[in-house]
């Protein structure tokens, strides 16, 4: 059975290879979250490195009070906010969405266009709204964990997410995308 995150954090106080396991395990989701929060600029590499440096620096102070992921994403948010402040005049770059491989090229083109549109709309939201959407849709955190990561009550997180989704829908409509209404 693989060691838990808490165990790895505890071990990496003495053994650097445990930290390597932790990085290996968490680097892809961390990069994914940062890329969605800030856009997949070259900084994604450096910022995820900064996240893990902060974690390594805090290894002696780490207390497994809550889920490791909650603590990790709180650091991701802090690093992303710092980066956002550093380049606050710049627009969040757009994400080049991967091409979709399907048998129908027309459907593939439509799908890719929609994904790029959603990505663009997401990038245009205010950081607080983007954060709550990214934490809900691009990580495995529950509402209570998101609340803890954001240091907000769960009810605030939910009402913020509602506003964020409405704004995202508005942005999508403004760009000429009307997301297909799903069957209920």
């Amino acid at each position: 059975m693989p060691p838990t995150d808490h165990e790895l954090m505890h071990r990496c106080r003495e053994d650097a290879s445990s930290f390597d396991h932790l990085v290996e395990r968490w680097q892809p989701p961390v990069q994914r979250a940062i890329a969605r929060l800030l856009g997949p600029t070259a900084d994604v590499d450096d910022l995820s490195q900064e996240v893990f440096l902060r974690i390594y620096g805090a290894r002696h102070r780490y207390q497994p009070r809550a889920a490791f992921s909650t603590w990790l994403y709180r650091i991701v948010l802090n690093v992303s906010r710092d980066a956002h402040r550093r380049r606050w005049r710049q627009r969040v770059p757009l994400v080049d969405e991967p091409w979709v491989e399907t048998e129908d090229p027309h459907a593939a083109a439509q799908l890719s266009e929609l994904r790029s549109g959603v990505s663009r709309a997401l990038a245009r939201l205010r950081p607080r709204h983007r954060e709550v959407i990214v934490l809900r849709h691009f990580t495995d955190l529950t509402f209570s964990e998101i609340a803890e990561a954001l240091d907000q009550p769960e009810s605030t997180v939910k009402s913020r997410l509602r506003v964020a989704l409405e704004k995202l829908h508005h942005e999508l409509s403004r760009q000429g995308f009307a997301p297909q209404e799903l069957e209920e």
């Binding site: 892809p28 969605r36 994604v44 590499d45 979709v100 994904r115 849709h137 995202l168 209404e181």
Partner: peptide, 20 residues
């Protein structure tokens, strides 16, 4: 809300494990 969630789910499903 359902439509927006559906669009986000679509994007999340297509997001690679690592975007870099």
């Amino acid at each position: 809300l359902l439509a927006t969630r559906g669009a986000l789910d679509e994007l999340a499903a297509s997001t690679p494990r690592s975007l870099v």
